[in-house]
Computed example of a mutant assay.
Amino acid sequence: MNNRVAVVVGNPKPRSRTYESALILADRLGGADLVVDLADHASELFDWAAPRVTELVEEVASSLVVVVASPTYKATYTGLLKAFLDRFPHQGLGGVTAIPLMLGASPVHSLATEHGLRPLLVELGASVPTRGLYVLDSEHDRPETYDAWFATAQQLLPTLPAPAPSLEVSSA
């Protein structure tokens, strides 16, 4: 495993609330070793020969834990995130523990994490031992938003080795 914790953010807006929320969650896990803000790679996602996207797929697949985050679009995850996840081969996330995270404006879509994103991650071979986390946009920066989820999820997540000394943030 190259990365303890990777974060993949599928919001088309760079450095979005989804991005911030994913980093807050990763910090609860000891910090992210790799952050992939897909907004930085949108122009490359449909170029199957794009070397940087191929590298990012390999880096995410070699992580112990990956936080996969998306805003809620039409009651599901974004096409940007789907385009990235389509790059993984069958069972391409085998051996990886995934945490689905979605943000939305209303609790009406709170099951989108469980009914949309979680099955996709399982299909790719990831272990998803916890319920996904749905965060209201208006509460994304409040620590208590993550407290109850983390209190129950922590015992189901793998024990992570000590954090790496530096953070790599993917850029275009």
Rank of each mutant, 00 (worst) to 15 (best):
G132A: 12
L136H: 00
P129S: 10
P119N: 12
P71Y: 10
I99E: 07
L111C: 00
V128N: 08
A83N: 13
H115K: 04
G104E: 11
H115T: 12
Y73A: 06
R87G: 12
Q91D: 15
P161F: 04
H140P: 00
R142P: 00
L121V: 05
R87T: 04
P71G: 11
K82P: 03
A151W: 01
D86E: 15
G94I: 01
A151I: 01
A126L: 04
P129V: 09
H90V: 12
Q155K: 14
T130P: 02
H90D: 15
S127D: 10
G116V: 05
T152I: 12
G132R: 09
Y77S: 02
L160A: 13
D137N: 11
Y77T: 00
Y77P: 04
W149K: 00
P107W: 00
A112R: 03
D141F: 07
R87F: 07
Q91P: 05
K74G: 01
S106H: 11
Q155N: 01
G79C: 08
R118L: 06
T152R: 09
A112Y: 05
R87L: 03
T152V: 14
R118P: 01
L133A: 06
P89F: 02
L121T: 03
Q154G: 13
R142L: 15
Y73F: 15
L136N: 03
L85N: 01
A112M: 04
A105D: 11
Q155F: 06
M102G: 07
S70F: 01
L156N: 09
L111F: 14
S127Q: 13
L81M: 07
L103F: 03
P107V: 13
P119A: 08
G95D: 10
Y146D: 09
T159K: 14
W149V: 10
T159I: 13
